[in-house]
Amino acid sequence: MKAVRQDRRPMAGTASKMAAALALAACICAMPSLAYSQAANAPSEKIWNELKTDVFEDRTIQSDTGLIRIEAPKRAQDAALVPVDIFIDPAKFPGGIKSLTLIVDVNPSPVAATFQFGENSGVTHLSTRLRVDDYSYLRAIAETANGELHMAQTYVKASGGCSAPAVKNQDEANRTMGQMKLRQFAEQDSQTGKGRELQLMIRHPNNSGLQKDPLTQYFIPPHFIHKLSVSQDDRPILSMEGGISISEDPNFRFDYTPDGNGEIRVEAVDTDGKVFRDQWPLEAAGL
């Protein structure tokens, strides 16, 4: 488990423009859901019904088709760190899926992240961690190669109390920002059909911002990784855009199908335009 850091080129110009656009977009979407959160038990569904046309226009979204499954704890233990697992049934997706959108209805900016998968990447299971502000459905919507949308959802009760969706150790998060770690797990036994697994960990406060500072009434600016790509040599395995509700120190664990012995390469860009890159040789036998 080596963590080799190299070549971080700031790309301030374009990325800060993107960040500004993103912050603006985020503030706009923040308004309706903040309003909803005023009512303690405002149904997540109501938000979703208005949100889905914004995100998917009038396309048909099929539910409970068994092609996709999502799992999360019934009650969030830590609002800043809610583990979520998404399973894609490879038997029902012969062409694989093109993309996967993760949504947390009640969050100030509900689209948590959108993942794209490389051709023949073999990803059938993805787990990550989310910030969840309040009682909410977590939704995973997969787009198939032929453009169908399939959705799975699970309801998470908010953690409540003093567990806030905020960075726990802000100075440490700032100090270590950009460090990466990759763990490689060997194939499980053939009975489960699980392929090799990677766990990618990136140090970053990944602050969603959007919280209104009660002391100043200003919104705290967002600062998070909004672009991520994982490839084997130049072959894309997985990429992500968005990322606003991904937890501090973004963490992604997923299976994949390796092709040859090429190295694993990662590039991440945050909303300040900082670029973080790292690479690791493919381990012959992982954990």
Binding site: D133, A158, G161, P165, Q170, D213, P214
Partner: peptide
């Protein structure tokens, strides 16, 4: 660090404790 911590959490605290 307390003002910074309250800035990031205060709004959440006021909302989540209203429920609790």
């Amino acid at each position: 660090n307390l003002p910074r911590a309250l800035a990031a959490r205060g709004e959440f605290y006021l909302r989540s404790y209203r429920n609790q």
